[in-house]
Simulated assay, not measured.
Amino acid sequence: MTKHRMYTTAFANVYPLYVAKAEKKGRTKAEVDQVISWLTGYDPKALEAQLQKQTDFETFFAKAPKINPSRALIKGMVCGVRVEDIEEPTMREIRYLDKLIDELARGKTMDKILRET
């Protein structure tokens, strides 16, 4: 079975697209980083190291310091698929991140994006 090409794509190649999407809607790179940190546990220094190493998505999530257990609260559609229905774990993590970036770009408040009560 061949891996989905997204798994082997360098996170550093997609990261600028996340930032651009957010900035286009008046959000900041710092907010993108905060969302990534919330989901994965990467602090700014560790995130920068992953970007410099050109780490692929599969490794980026596999080596994440602390995947947030509250990510299961992320619901909704990304690329025409409900994130909560994605069975493959790595693809689900990628789509969770996509959904969070979408919410950021749509103007949701950080407390709602980060599933704070």
Rank of each mutant, 00 (worst) to 15 (best):
K29V: 00
P65C: 09
G76W: 11
A20Q: 13
F11H: 04
A64Q: 05
K63R: 10
M6T: 08
M91D: 02
A30Y: 01
A10F: 01
M110V: 01
I94G: 11
D111V: 07
D56P: 07
C79Y: 11
W38N: 00
E31G: 11
D85G: 03
T28E: 00
K3G: 00
M110E: 01
R115V: 02
I36S: 05
R71A: 12
A46T: 07
E103H: 15
A30Q: 14
K29P: 01
L97V: 07
A46R: 12
Q52L: 12
A10C: 09
Y96E: 10
V14P: 02
A49P: 08
V19Q: 03
K108E: 15
T8P: 09
K3L: 05
A10K: 13
D111E: 15
R71F: 07
C79G: 10
F61S: 00
Y7T: 04
T109Q: 14
K63A: 10
K75C: 09
D85K: 09
A72W: 00
K24H: 10
Y42L: 03
L97M: 13
F60A: 08
E103I: 06
D102N: 00
Y7K: 06
D56S: 12
D102I: 01
V83L: 11
R92L: 14
P16S: 06
L97E: 10
L47D: 02
K112N: 14
A30V: 08
G76T: 12
K53T: 01
T55N: 02
P65A: 11
C79K: 13
E31H: 10
Q52I: 06
C79I: 07
T28I: 03
K63I: 06
T59K: 10
S70V: 03
G107H: 05
E93K: 00
V32I: 03
A22I: 04
P44R: 02
R82Q: 11
D85R: 14
E58Y: 08
R27I: 12
M6E: 06
D102A: 00
A64H: 10
I113A: 04
Y15A: 08
L100N: 06
A12R: 12
L73I: 00
E87G: 12
R106E: 14
T9L: 15
R115E: 09
A22K: 06
T2E: 03
Q34K: 05
E31A: 10
Y15D: 09
Q50F: 05
K45V: 15
R27W: 13
T90F: 11
R71I: 11
R27M: 11
